[in-house]
């Protein structure tokens, strides 16, 4: 299955820049997590991908060619603001969407049954959507995005408002679609979920992509400090003194930890000298790069001053 490319997308609302040359790529079978604070431009980027909005500049390509309406019909989309006909019955509604996406009525019927069962709303097929709980409406919404067997999934906040069981079902479905070669993009504020589920992550801030890569790549970027922790029988004061005496090393306290410090090496190999110095005065329990969590990375990135917020 081809990959999706967003190439230097820009979009302004009046004087507000919602997107500034935003670019990223999602490969076949890859789950791409799209994170950023509210108004960073995630929704705008997704709406442009689906052709619901027109970009001022830039292009969305699918397998190297601009994504057109005919190809968009094969995309599964879940907008941030959910959209279903409240008075229409679940099955009728999903059939309508499936047929709009170009399925034959027979295939559509089969797919509706399959997906409603899979998502646990099979017993509500004949009920009007407005009679369902919000969580169940959310499941129907996901079914609407999946019913036509899409070749690309673009889901804006698919996990918001779901109970833990539904989150598991949704995660499983996303993994399964990705395993079938479908590129999956989703945005979320639940960063633990993103960390667990995504192959790659993009952090967007003020309309620009500020970091992309696998979680490990992202964590390795920048100068992560070394963390050195010692055992109970070691004298903390002695270790600290020994470390402070090593040339080219800055020692920092680790908040909440009395048995460890952060070491920033200013000179090549200085951290090795610091390790040797520590081993001479006591017992070293662990010594490793202290990689940030996605949440920490995210905070670092988005706490950089952003200009006007955009209602995306």
């Amino acid at each position: 299955m081809p990959s999706l490319e967003l190439d230097r997308l820009s979009k302004s609302y009046g004087s507000v820049h919602a997107l500034r040359e935003l670019s990223f790529e999602v490969g076949a079978g890859e789950i791409f997590g799209f994170v950023g604070s509210n108004g960073a431009g995630k929704t705008t980027a997704m709406r442009i991908t689906l052709g619901v909005l027109a970009a001022d500049a830039g292009e969305v390509r699918w397998g190297g060619v601009p994504l057109d309406l005919e190809m968009r019909r094969r995309v599964g989309y879940m907008p941030e603001e959910r959209g279903l006909y409240p008075k229409m019955k679940v099955a009728e509604q999903l059939l309508f969407f499936a047929e709009l996406h170009g399925m034959s009525p027979a295939d559509a019927r089969e797919a509706v049954d399959r997906w409603t069962d899979r998502l646990g709303v099979g017993h509500r097929r004949r009920d009007a959507v407005e009679k369902l709980s919000l969580g169940n409406q959310q499941r129907v919404q996901l079914a609407a995005a999946l019913v036509h067997d899409p070749v690309l999934l673009v889901l804006d906040e698919p996990f918001s408002g779901l109970d833990p069981v539904a989150v598991d079902v949704m995660s499983e479905v996303l993994r399964e679609r990705a395993a079938a070669g479908v590129p999956v993009i989703f945005s979320s504020h639940q960063l633990d979920l993103v960390e667990r589920l995504c192959d790659r992550v993009g952090i967007v801030s003020a309309g620009s992509m500020v970091a992309t890569g696998s979680i490990d790549e992202l964590r390795a970027t920048g100068e992560a400090p070394w963390m050195l922790a010692w055992g109970e029988r070691t004298d903390p004061v002695a270790v600290r003194q020994a470390l402070a005496a090593v040339p080219g090393v800055t020692v920092q306290e680790v908040p909440g930890r009395g048995d460890a410090v952060h070491l920033l090496a200013q000179l090549e190999g200085a951290e090795q000298a610091a390790l040797r110095a520590a081993l001479e005065v006591g017992e070293v329990r662990s010594f490793a790069r202290d990689l940030p969590t996605l949440t920490e990375l995210f905070r670092d990135v988005v706490s950089a001053p952003a200009d006007e917020e955009v209602a995306a």
Binding site: R47, L50, G51, V52, L69, R72, R73, V75, Y77, P79, E81, R82, G83, L84, Y85, P86, F97, L100, H101, A144
Partner: peptide
């Protein structure tokens, strides 16, 4: 207006003109 209020129009317009 119903399609706008219920936001279903966004799904529709990702599929048709």
């Amino acid at each position: 207006v119903e399609e706008k209020t219920s936001r279903v129009v966004e799904i529709l317009l990702s599929t048709i003109r």
